[in-house]
Computed example of a mutant assay.
Amino acid sequence: MASSKFQALWNHPAGPKTIHFWAPTFKWGISIANLADSTKPPEKVSYPQQIAVTATGVIWSRYSTVITPKNWNLFSVNIVMAGTGIYQLSRKIQHDYFSKEQAAVVTKE
């Protein structure tokens, strides 16, 4: 049974014998790096970079659902990319816009 599943994956049009498998597989490195960056201080997060990561994730997630054959590896990596980009953007926005307002309120009191 495992042999037939492996063979099905191996011979799939988006399987390991094609670039359609390897490109999204290596793209996981970007998502992992973005997750690792969540330990960086928010002031070091870049708006343009995170907007690009988020937009890429959203656009390619949609694309991966409309192509034939369905490429679920591409879909999953881009969902994670969009999620990590949104998380990093929310950290940056909260730091840049909301922490200053809270500090100002505390100072006035």
Rank of each mutant, 00 (worst) to 15 (best):
P16C: 06
K44F: 12
Y47V: 04
S61L: 01
P48C: 05
P16F: 07
S46C: 11
S31K: 03
I30F: 14
A55I: 10
T56Y: 05
T39H: 10
T54F: 03
N34R: 04
N73Y: 04
S64L: 11
Y63C: 08
V53Q: 05
Q49Y: 13
I67C: 10
D37N: 05
T56R: 00
S64Y: 00
W22M: 13
L35E: 01
L74C: 01
T65A: 07
W60M: 07
S76E: 02
R62Y: 15
T65N: 07
K40T: 09
P41Q: 14
Y47M: 01
W60L: 09
F26Y: 11
N71M: 05
I67G: 03
V45L: 14
F26V: 09
G15P: 07
K44R: 10
N34T: 13
T25Y: 15
A52G: 06
P69Y: 08
S38R: 11
T68Y: 12
S61Q: 00
I51L: 14
A23F: 15
S38D: 04
N34C: 13
I59V: 12
S38H: 05
Y47T: 05
H20I: 06
T54K: 02
W22S: 14
I67T: 15
P48H: 05
I19M: 14
I30V: 15
A55D: 01
K40G: 09
I59A: 14
Q49A: 13
S31F: 15
W22K: 13
Y63M: 07
H20S: 12
T68L: 13
Q49L: 11
Y63L: 06
S76K: 00
Q50W: 15
A23H: 11
D37T: 02
I32A: 15
A52K: 13
V45W: 03
W60Y: 12
P16E: 04
I59W: 08
W60G: 01
S31H: 10
V45S: 02
K40F: 11
T18R: 08
R62C: 12
I32M: 09
N34P: 00
A52Q: 06
T25Q: 11
V45K: 04
Q49N: 05
A52Y: 12
N73R: 01
G57R: 01
K27E: 11
L35Y: 10
V53T: 09
L35A: 07
I30N: 10
L74S: 05
T56V: 06
D37G: 08
Y47G: 04
A52S: 04
P69R: 06
A33M: 11
H20D: 11
Q50A: 13
H20M: 12
N73C: 00
W60S: 03
D37Y: 04
